[in-house]
Amino acid sequence: MAKVKIYVTHKKGILDPQGKTVETALKSLGYKNVSDVHIGKYIELEIEGRDVKQQVKEMCEKLLSNPIIEQYRFEVET
């Protein structure tokens, strides 16, 4: 059994409306030194069997991320 942690974020250059809004809010709280805030999704799953990396890659490309606007990375813990 492997545990997989998947991070889905906006692609570089694609407008991230949530990130921008949170950045503005942080600045208004006085954190003027903050920049480049991005908000993404964190997905955890457990998976059995072989070819875990290949399968997770497929899941990310088919369903978990939208390659038009998002990018993903993941970590596998065995």
């Binding site: 694609i14 407008l15 409306p17 949530q18 809004t21 939208n66 038009i68 606007i69």
Partner: peptide, 17 residues
């Protein structure tokens, strides 16, 4: 339709949320 690839592009969160 965009998610299914029947139309190009994607619809994401409105600019002002």
């Amino acid at each position: 339709l965009t998610e299914a690839g029947l139309l190009p592009g994607a619809l994401q969160r409105n600019k002002d949320l």
